[in-house]
Every structure is written in C-alpha cells, then in structure tokens.
Write a protein that binds this DNA or RNA. Structure first.
Lengths: 341, 341
DNA sequence: ATACAAATTGTAAACGTTTACATCGTCTAA
DNA sequence: TTAGACGATGTAAACGTTTACAATTTGTAT
C-alpha cells in the first residue's frame, strides 16, 4: 500500500505537504494541492488510520467502540442502528462488541477497545458497580452509558424511565381485570430489571394487591429463561392469569411456553412485554408491549459521545426518555384507549 | 497510559526485553521475566494494539472486519454470533460494519477497514460484481465471502444451496395442493435472490405449472417491501393461495399484510419463508421456513479466515451447506413428514 | 585456560502519520 | 531600501511497538 512518502515522491513535495493537503490545512498553493491530489488518485492512496491514531493522541481516530450486552436482543439492534446512523453521518467508524451478558467478556472487550485507542465508548454496563466502566472515567476516556447507569460515577447516560414503563404496563393489566399478574425478570444484577420490578410492585400496591413471591421469577434475560420460567409459572396449581415479561427475549420465550400449554391469549392469559419489536404487531395476537425508543436512545447516545469527544469537559448529561405502552391484542380489549399500531 | 518504556524503566530492563516477555519469546531469564511482569501489573500496563499493528505488518493485529448487508435481519445476527464465538476463542477482535444494503456505504466501510489494517475481512458482497471486494484479492488482503459469491474471483466462500432450498420449499407447497404460489424476491442484484427464484421456477416446471410474471415481485429485501409487495399480490383479482418469501424481513412484512387482509393461515393462504428465526415456532401459526445454518455459516467463515490469515496461500475453499425445511403450521398439514420444531 | 556455542539482554531502525519548528521567498509599509 | 509579516514548504521528532543485529555473559568441550 502506498504511503505518504510515495505520494510525496510522486508529487515532488515533502510528506508534510501531503499531510497538509489531506487534512486540508490552510496555506497551500493551489497548484501544489492539485499535484498532490493527482498523485494520490494515481496511486490509490488511502491514509493509514492506525498511524494517524497512533500519532495524534487527540481524538483524531474517528473511531468509537460500542459494547452491548446481547446482540440477539432486537432492542440493541435498534440502538445500534441509531448509533450507526449518527456516527456514519459524522464520519466515525464503530467497533461493536457483544459481550453476551458475560461480564468477563465485557472486561476483555473494553480493554481491547481502549488499547485500540478509540476516541470514545458507548457502553451498557453489566451492572451499576461495573469497575471496568467506572475506570474509564479515571482514565479520562470519553464514554456514555446507555440503558443502565453507574453508581457513584458521573457520566452521560441515556435511558428510559423503566419504573414508570413497568408501572403503566402492570396498571393496565390490572385495569383489564387481570388478577394474578406474574413478572419474569431479567438478570437481577441489571438495574433495569430491578426498576421494572419496582414499577410492578408499585402498581400492585396501588391496586391493593399483595405482592406474592411465587409470582416473580428471576432469570438471565434470555429466551430460554423466558421459556423455563414461564413453564414454572404456568405449572402452578393456581396459575397466573397474566404475564409481565422483563425483556424482548423473555417475552418470546414466554410466548412459546404459552403456546406449548395451549393457552389462549388474551382470554386464558394476558401478556405484556417490556420492549417492543418490529414484528410485535405481526404476532398473533398482536403483542401489547412497552416500547422503548431504542433507535432514538442510540442516536442520542451517539450525539452525546460525539459532543464529549469534542468537548471533554462539558457537564454530564442524563437523558431519560419516555416509554410508550403499545396496546394491541395480547391483553383484554375493554378500555383500549391509548395509542395503537 | 503507561507504555513499554515506562515498564522497562520500572523493571530496570530495556524495552526490547519487555516486549519479549509480553510476546513470551524464548530465552528469557525467569527472574527477569518475573520482574517485568511485576512492573506490568503495578502499572496496569496494556499494550497498544495500534502501535503493534502499525509495526508488525504481518497479521499480528488480531483484528478482523466483518461487513454485513443488514443488521436488522436476524439471519445476520446469527452469522455474527458464529463469527464472534470463533474469533473470541482465538483472541481476535472484530469490527462489525452494517452497510444497510447501501453499496456506497459498503465501499466506505471496506476502505475504512483496510486502512485500519485489519488482518482480514468477512464480507457479504453487495453483488457478484462488487469491485471493492474483488479488489481485496488484488491487494492480497485475506477475506472470505459469505452468503454471496463473486464472479470471476477465487475466494473462500461459505453459503447455502439456495436454489435447492427454494426448490424444496416450493415443491412442498405444491405437494400441499397449493395452486397459485407467489414469490416475493429480495434485491435482484443479490445472487441469492436469483438462485431462490431459480428454485421456485424449477419446482413449478416439475409440477407442470406455468410460470406467471404477475406472481413474482421484486423488492429491496426489507420488511417494508414485504408489506407492500404482499399487498400488491393479495389485491389481485384472483389472488395467490400461497407465498414464498425471499428472506426473513420480507416474511415478517408479508405476515403483517396477511393479517391486515384478514386472511387465515394456512387455510386462506399458505406461506413459507426463506430463513428461519428463533421465534418462528412461536408465531401463530408457527411458521414453516427454510432454515439456513446461520450460526454455522458464521463459524465456518471465521475458521476459514483464520486459516487464511495463518496461511495466505492455501487453496480456496467453497463450503456449500444444506438448508433444512422446517415444517410447521403455516402450510396445510396433510403430509407433514419432515422434521419439526 | 581456550575457543566456540548458547543464552540473555540491549540498541536502534522501522512502521505511517502529525506537528512544532525552521527555512526561504515575496510582499508591504515605512 | 529594509524590516517585518506572511505564505509556502521542508525537516525531523514523536507516537508505542517489533525486530534485526550487536553485545555481553555464561556454559561446555577440549
């Protein structure tokens, strides 16, 4: 591959000059610029991003890292699209790392990204005490958190009001006269799981329904755990008449189990999933779900990171977005008032 | 961030020695090695991947690039998981780029990856004439293609027998007494779209059913085009009684349209989708689909790339995997003989 | 003891950029 | 005419590694 030097030779100038026209620095003779550009074309010159990054420590790499917990979860796919669109528009490349809910893998990836000298990171921390992510602050590496915050650390953060979203969902279920509502939680170490549980509890309280231990199950945020825990729930002597599922994948799993038990939705059992999916309305029956503005979350996070890279010391920002209850047909139909798709 | 030099100072050795213990070269005094390791720990030293990559041109970067056409398509997610698992196991990091079926974006990303000096690439080329991908061969950059081949270029390739998969699906439909089968194609420039159409045609021929132009629609491989084209199809005076959909996203779109038209599956209309999805069996009714071993495709591709990086001149390999018709309930039930999930 | 091989470590160049600084004309204003 | 400013370009150091080569020490066989 041709390098700066080769181009310089061909154009009969010094490498500094070539560098200048590449970064269109001021004070370059038009004729020189032209010659250099010709030479670059002729040799199909493409700058080495790594050399560039190595040399200019100052955020010139145009490269960011994104660390997500589970790429098989459609929610994160949408988040990634949002990030990608923004970053692509700003000429940044992104390295996406999927740590599969495996904290060790997460640590490994963050290390790798840091040693790639990325300009910044967007991370969904494994949990609030995530030391690896916390360390980023000390090392002065720009980063923004999504979906989950960090305890005792100031950092940009974009997420959704999980407690409220869950509260609305469960309240809705209660209003639809469901009496025994179960909650299938994702990994308990993930703050969102707990916040959603809080919303669940608050709704119950408000309706004067006692909280019952056997109605909440804790899993690992995977489809499989959705399947298994729904089985446990539905096998109970006096089984729940509605399910509130803690994420996308759990919902899919629960749906499978419900089919396996031959239960009719929404008559035999109602279900609301946290996280909407493109095809939720295609499901049969269409799924009532708590929608997070995933794409938007990604986009805002990207924007925040971009700003921070440009201006490392601006104050931290926390963006809390609203969820939206997408009322479809997996819950009884009576008072269907809110938005529909 | 501490560098080689700092560690060397602390340990009282030269940077070369430090480098040696890092890459555990032979012939190092145990005591020295120990001192150096202590120093590294103490300073929380992490090597700079970029410096390393810059210096040692020879595939030491442990970094690959992956370029996929559409990250919102679950098929590619599974492929990515396969790649990721293999690469993670071999200590490689991967940069994933999603070009959203946009050829210009694809070119841009490939350039960027090359100038990141990745050790190799896994690419699903936009089409068979993809010059950017072809160029990789000339530049001697290790790469392997997935899902789609390249015309007149020898390269490692992992894909599925699309023609056969489609043939089997459509034959099955025909055997189930569906008479008027429509095909919704993805982007026509993608070889798989054409191969699948060929399979469709061959099945028709074999059953002596004339091919009818108005029964095949060409779209852009997106869910939206699935929705729109299914609408066109179902609006016809004498509408088709079965749909064969060219990919995941199209299938989802078509399902939505079918629901919109209030049609019953499989009575009013049958449907088989190319590409299975984790939740296909959860759909109502469970979706009959042509399954590609997506994860395996990714894994094998990763393996091939890994090998090629180690041994750039080994002969090219083309791996053609089998599809599997997952017979579920979106087609009539009569002769359900084959596998089920 | 002697010579040569092996083991261990160090020195310095190189990878492809950016960038501070120097150089050298050419203008402009006095 | 000349000093200073400005425009255009070049020189060389630096970024953090790897690695060829040199240097030194140690060991071994004679």
């Amino acid at each position: 591959m041709a390098g700066l030097k080769d181009v310089a030779n061909k154009a009969g100038v010094s490498i500094a000059t070539v560098s200048r026209v590449i970064n269109n620095a001021p004070n370059i003779n038009d004729e020189t610029r032209f010659r250099v550009q010709q030479a670059m074309k002729a040799m199909d010159y493409r700058p080495s991003r790594i050399a560039k990054r190595l040399r200019s420590k100052s955020s010139q790499g145009n490269l960011i890292g994104v660390v997500v917990p589970d790429i098989s979860n459609p929610f994160y796919i949408d988040v990634l699209s949002g990030i990608d669109d923004f970053m692509h528009g700003h000429d940044f490349l992104m390295i996406t790392c999927n740590f599969s809910q495996n904290e060790e893998k997460e640590r490994l990836y963050i290390d790798a990204l840091v040693s790639e000298s990325v300009d910044g990171l967007i991370v969904a921390p494994a949990h609030e005490e995530d030391e690896k992510v916390k360390a980023l602050e000390k090392e002065n590496i720009p980063f923004v958190c999504i979906d989950r915050g960090l305890k005792n650390v100031n950092a940009d953060l974009v997420l959704v009001d999980n407690e409220k979203g869950a509260y609305e969902a469960v309240s809705f279920l209660l209003n639809q006269e469901y009496k025994k509502i179960a909650y299938i939680s994702g990994l308990i170490r993930i703050p969102t799981s707990r916040h959603r549980e809080n919303g669940y509890r608050r709704a119950l309280e408000e309706f004067n329904i006692p909280f019952r231990d056997e109605l909440v199950k804790y899993g690992d945020s995977s489809m499989k755990s959705g399947i298994d825990l729904a089985r446990e729930l539905l096998s109970q002597e006096n089984r729940p008449d509605a399910l509130f599922t803690g994420n996308n994948l759990i919902t899919l799993g629960a749906l499978q189990t419900i089919a396996e038990f031959g239960l009719k939705i929404p008559e035999d059992i109602g279900i609301i999933g946290f996280d909407d999916m493109v095809f939720s309305s295609t499901l049969n029956p269409p799924l009532t779900a708590v929608r997070q503005p995933a794409y938007e979350i990604g986009r805002r996070a990207a924007e925040l990171l971009y700003q921070r890279i440009k201006e490392p010391n601006r104050p931290n920002v926390k963006i809390v977005m609203e969820t939206e209850l997408m009322i479809r047909k997996s819950t009884r139909l009576e008072n269907a008032t809110t938005k529909t798709t």
